[in-house]
Each structure stands twice: as structure tokens, then as C-alpha cells.
Amino acid sequence: MSKYHVTTTVNNDEFEFLCEPTQTMLDVLRDELNLTGSKEGCATGDCGACSVVMDGRLVCSCLVLGVEMEGKSIETIEGMADGDDLHPLQQKFLDHAALQCGICTPGVLVSAKALLEKNPDPTETEVRYWLAGNLCRCTGYDKIIRAVMDAAKEMRAA
């Protein structure tokens, strides 16, 4: 299968890569760019573990082709903290013990960040529905929701 040359921006870094037309953005991030923070839980858009933001839109990277990354700007979990300065959401997830195994955590954080950028003062119901596409099997979501609400509050005050 001949490969396609793609130029893209991930977390403000420009990347060039070659990919097969059937490779997804998730495959590219993980296998070509070594950004393994985005996880594959289903590859069908049902679990949200691969969530990234592409040109300002929250998407499942498993449902975007690598070739579609051409000219796009992608934000992944690896770009969320500023050096060792964690994003308030990341900090609140630690404070609230909002993770157990941690496999869904990158996707949940990327989604939650996209929510708070769109809606800085969401209700609990809004948080729950926004995150409906991020499956977590460990926590029962309770502490995740609390952490997001608390981070939103802190970010509004800042």
C-alpha cells in the first residue's frame, strides 16, 4: 500500500509523517509520532479513550484518518500540562482521586478541557452528558464529575 505524506501540527509542534490511507489518526499518533497518551479502547468511537481536539473540535482520533490530519492543528493529552505545571483539571483529578486504573483518564481530561473552554460554568448534568462518550469502568464517574466541577470553579475564579 503506498503511503501518503502528511504535514500536521500536534501540540504546537509541526510533524511530517508517512501513513497508509487506512491508518487512523490514533494509529499515527501512537505508532508514527510516539504519542501514546491517547488510548485505543474500541476503535469505533464508543469509548472516548482516544479523544483529541482537532482545529478546536473534540473528536475521537480513532474516527479520523491519518491523511485527514494534513494542515490541521491537533491537541492531545501530552500537550495539556505546561512543563511540570499541571492544568487545573489534571490537578483536580489527582486531588479528587478521579482515576483508578487511569486508561480512560487522558481521554476524559481532553474532553473535559474542551467542555470548559466552551462552557466555563457547566451544571452537573451538562458535565455528565458531555462526557457520555468517555467510558470509565473503574470509578462509577462520581469522582470524575466532582473533579471537573471543582476545576471549573477554580478556573472561573482565576
Binding site: D46, G48, R57, V59, L63, L131, G133, N134
Partner: peptide, 9 residues
């Protein structure tokens, strides 16, 4: 249709 993520696409 689908999740917030799917809505983006």
C-alpha cells in the same frame, strides 16, 4: 447521534 466527540465529525 453518538457522543460529543462523534458530534464533532
Amino acid at each position: 447521534i453518538g457522543s460529543t466527540q462523534v458530534q464533532g465529525r
